[in-house]
Amino acid sequence: MDVYIRSVNVGRPRPGIEPRGRDTAIDKRPVASVEVRDPGPKRGGLGSGVVEDDVVARRHHGGSRQAVYAVAREELDWWAAEVGRDLHDGVFGENLTTVGLDVDAAVVGERWRVGTALLEVSGPRIPCATFAAWMGERGWVRRFTERGRTGAYLSVVQPGRISRGDPVEVVSRPAGGLTVPEVFRGLTGDLDLARRVLDAGILDDRDHATLERKVARRTPTDH
Rank of each mutant, 00 (worst) to 15 (best):
Glu74Gly: 04
Val103Gly: 02
His88Ser: 13
Arg206Phe: 12
Val71Ile: 08
Pro127Trp: 12
Val34Arg: 10
Asp190Ser: 11
Gly165Trp: 04
Leu118Lys: 07
Pro167Val: 12
Met135Tyr: 01
Gly160His: 05
Thr145Tyr: 04
Ile5Gly: 02
Val156Leu: 04
Asp2Val: 13
Arg59Leu: 08
Cys128Ala: 06
Val91Met: 01
Leu187Gln: 08
Asp38Thr: 12
Gly186Gln: 11
Asp27Glu: 14
Ala105His: 11
Asp27Lys: 11
Arg125Trp: 04
Ser122Gly: 04
Glu74His: 03
Val34Glu: 10
Asp199Cys: 00
Glu137His: 03
Asn95Ser: 09
Phe131Ser: 06
Leu87Lys: 01
Gly109Asn: 08
Phe144Leu: 01
Val180Pro: 10
Glu18Pro: 00
Thr98Cys: 06
Arg29Lys: 15
Glu120Leu: 02
Gly45Phe: 06
Val83His: 01
Leu191Val: 15
Asp199Arg: 15
Arg206Met: 07
Val103Asp: 11
Asp53Ala: 02
Glu182Ile: 02
Gly84Phe: 01
Ile5Leu: 11
Ala81Trp: 07
Val180Leu: 11
Gly139Ser: 14
Leu211Tyr: 10
Arg196Asn: 03
Lys214Gln: 13
Pro167Tyr: 05
Val31Ala: 07
Ala81Pro: 00
Glu35Met: 04
Arg142Ile: 01
Thr188Pro: 05
Ala105Met: 12
Tyr153Arg: 06
Val197Gln: 14
Thr24Ala: 08
Gly44Cys: 07
Ser64Gln: 05
Val55Phe: 06
Leu154Gly: 02
His208Val: 02
Gly90Asn: 13
Asp77Val: 15
Lys42Glu: 14
Thr188Ile: 10
Val8Cys: 09
Val51Asn: 03
Arg14Asp: 07
Leu118Pro: 01
His61Gly: 04
Ala152Ile: 00
Asn9Met: 06
Val103Leu: 08
Ile5Asn: 10
Val170Arg: 15
Gly177His: 14
Pro15Cys: 05
Arg125Phe: 06
Leu118Glu: 14
Trp112Asp: 00
Gly176Val: 08
Glu169Ile: 10
Val141Glu: 11
Ile126Phe: 06
Val55Cys: 01
Gly63Asp: 04
Asp89Met: 06
Gly148Ala: 14
Gln158Ala: 15
Pro174Asp: 07
Asp86Gln: 05
Ala80Phe: 13
Val108Lys: 13
Val51Gly: 00
Val3Thr: 15
Gly148Phe: 12
Leu76Cys: 01
Glu169Gly: 00
Arg196Lys: 15
Ser48Glu: 13
Glu82Cys: 05
Glu74Phe: 09
Asp166Thr: 09
Lys214Phe: 12
Ala67Gln: 07
Arg37Asn: 05
Thr221Ser: 03
Asp23His: 11
Gly115Arg: 02
Val10Pro: 02
Thr221Glu: 14
Pro19Gln: 10
